[in-house]
Design a protein around this nucleic acid. Structure first.
Lengths: 195, 195
DNA sequence: ATCCTGACTTACCAGTAGGTAAGCATCAAG
DNA sequence: CTTGATGCTTACCTACTGGTAAGTCAGGAT
């Protein structure tokens, strides 16, 4: 039986929850083990027990985030049939993050990319690759079905969607203005719908 | 006569040049006074002589960057008449930054926004405001002249352009792939041209 | 020749960074 | 009732952070 320690439910999970928020708001270089430990009311050493180093913690963070994102995309595939609605749902995933005064974990890490340990870099680009793959499938599908209309390669469009939403998020948070993101997201998504 | 010190031309300028590159590649929290001093072959104390603290240095960096950007936009206004060409020139400004393996200074700082000193935060949002104002004027102009066509408010479109290009830049650098940015930029700009 | 000023350097400082070694409490299994 | 693993804490370390005080040294003005 996996023993749960003195605290309620899964210290490792709590650590990931807190540090995820810290990275999404302050960046990977903008928080310290001491910050996280203080918030969790444990010692730095306890953090090192669960995640030997900041690199390992960071990697775990990205892996979990990417897995959750992938699960959310799978759910969209289940619940939504039409490509344009899928794109709207995709944008809503970003909006949900922004609503909590955060930016996308990997958008943040994209900015800090050059200073990240290699394992984290790999995990971050995997996240973007997976997003691109999902979007590419949706776009292909929509164009075939005639519900979407656009010129050029689907992967180019997928990349545009990712980059645009990530950037819109960063700028919108700076102004504390959700509407700023929504306007951009709608414009991007609606612009791809068939006339 | 302003005395130029022992080194060639304007130590303060050299400091700004080096730290600008450091911020654009590693982020404001990703470099230290020691890093900059080492590259310049001067002491940390010399940095503190020219810029009393990191906050002042950072602010000077953003102010200079914004001024240069404004000058570049003014030059575009002089040399280019048609709105669609102006937008292309605007995107090219971003591309020039990316060519040097950097991202926009203020795009980077947008990610780190919550950890920045207040004076820097103000300078960063001023940068985005100025960009929005310039783009709004171009968009208004183009729509009136019939060279651009789009629905909704010009400032919404301006904000979309800024967010999209900033985000595309961050992701493109991660992949070390200029083409990734170019494809998005063209799609954004061309999508606004009148049919 | 002297003094002043601007542009630094040397030598510090306290605080924080990430990280480690060793110990201790709790519990489950033998 | 010991043993052993798990999940921590206490105490510590070294390197680096931004920052400062005091001194140095070249050149220009007086």
């Amino acid at each position: 039986m996996a023993m749960r320690g003195r605290r309620g439910g899964g210290t490792a999970t709590e650590i990931l929850d807190v540090t995820e928020r810290l990275v999404q708001t302050r960046g990977f270089n903008g928080f310290s083990y001491a910050d996280a430990a203080a918030e969790l009311a444990i010692t730095k050493a306890a953090l090192h027990y669960h995640f030997p180093g900041k690199a390992e913690l960071g990697e775990a963070l990205v892996v979990r985030y990417a897995a959750r994102f992938a699960a959310a995309l799978a759910q969209v595939d289940e619940e939504v049939a039409e490509a344009p609605r899928k794109l709207e749902a995709y944008a809503r995933l970003y909006l949900d993050v922004l609503r909590r005064d955060r930016v996308c974990l990997c958008g943040m890490l994209a900015a800090e990319y050059q200073t990240l340990p290699e394992t984290m870099q790999a995990a971050v680009s995997r996240f973007f690759d997976e997003n691109e793959a999902w979007l590419t499938a949706v776009l292909d599908d929509g164009r075939r079905a005639g519900t979407l209309a656009f010129a050029g390669s689907t992967s180019d469009v997928a990349r545009m969607i990712i980059g645009s939403l990530e950037g819109a998020m960063l700028v919108a948070r700076l102004y504390g203005d959700l509407g700023r993101f929504e306007a951009t997201a709608e414009r991007i998504v609606v612009g791809l719908a068939a006339p």
